[in-house]
């Protein structure tokens, strides 16, 4: 596309590897089609960098449909950029004007160390799920799916929370780098369903504990996470998490060690 192309200036965080010093480097992005997605714009810049013998900008991405949760960068100080409920891969360049300057930085959190440029390690999220973000239902022959009716409202609430894509925008946008929205979304998803009840309080306790161990900050209810979430997950889930946590802390019991029967 020649006519109508945008000419932009990018200020991009470049860091050659984990624990290396990094800095903001400026790049021109010329003749960018407004129809491009933000990541396609980065592709275009990278093609130019490779051709001119420079190292391309590393960034995580995969599905480019806004569902896998791989992509995610701070764009002009906002997680995933200026458009609400939109991942970076679904953000289109028509959102920008010719001559705009765009700041592009990785998610910043101690629990998300930078691997290279805009790529961070979000393994902490997996470990929070490992702590209890599941229902223990080993593969086998559970009861027929329809033998457990679930009210549509509960199923819908669970689905709202389950829509989380684990991108980390909530952490990135939070002034405290808190993972509360991520953790609360999973606690709410599973806690709202009858199948999730037996492990409900154990789960809340374990996941909150893991969230702290990973070094995320606490929740101050700024509301930034909800605004940044590409799936529109509500901070109401955090209310649910806190409620479950209170009940869990109040009712926590020693787990009994049973003697084997031989």
């Amino acid at each position: 596309m020649s006519a109508g192309g945008l000419n932009l200036t990018l200020h991009v965080w470049r860091q050659s590897g984990p624990n290396k010093a990094g800095k903001i480097v400026d790049y021109p992005a010329t003749n960018i089609s407004p129809e491009m997605s933000f990541l396609e714009m980065l592709d275009t810049v990278n093609e130019g960098l490779i051709t001119s013998g420079q190292d391309p900008i590393a960034f995580d991405h995969d599905c480019r449909e806004g569902i896998c949760g791989s992509c995610g960068v701070m764009i002009n100080g906002a997680a995933h950029g200026p458009m609400k409920q939109t991942t970076a891969c679904q953000l289109h360049m028509r959102t920008f004007k010719n001559g705009d300057e765009i700041w592009i930085e990785p998610w910043r959190a101690g629990a998300f160390p930078v691997i290279k440029d805009l790529v961070v390690d979000r393994g902490a999220f997996d470990r929070i799920i490992q702590a209890g973000g599941f229902i223990s239902a080993p593969t086998g022959s559970p009861q027929d799916a329809n033998s457990l009716p679930i009210s549509k409202l509960d199923a819908d609430d669970a689905m709202d929370a389950a829509a989380c894509i684990g991108c980390g925008a909530c952490v990135a946008a939070c002034p405290n780098a808190s993972a509360s929205l991520f953790t609360a979304a999973k606690i709410t998803h599973l806690g709202r369903l009858p199948q999730g009840q037996p492990e409900r309080y154990r789960r809340a306790l374990a996941m909150v504990t893991q969230m702290d161990i990973e070094g995320f900050g606490g929740c101050t209810l700024f509301g930034e996470c909800q605004e940044a979430c590409p799936k529109g997950i509500s901070i109401d889930t955090i209310v649910q998490m806190n409620r479950d946590y209170i009940v869990a802390a109040a009712s926590e019991r020693e787990e009994k060690v049973e003697m084997g029967a031989g």
């Binding site: 701070m74 002009n76 700041w103 959190a109 509301g223 930034e224």
Partner: peptide, 13 residues
């Protein structure tokens, strides 16, 4: 929890 600050961060809400 955020040892390295952002060069640019704009509070949204």
């Amino acid at each position: 929890a955020r040892p390295e600050p952002y060069a640019k961060r704009v509070p949204q809400v």
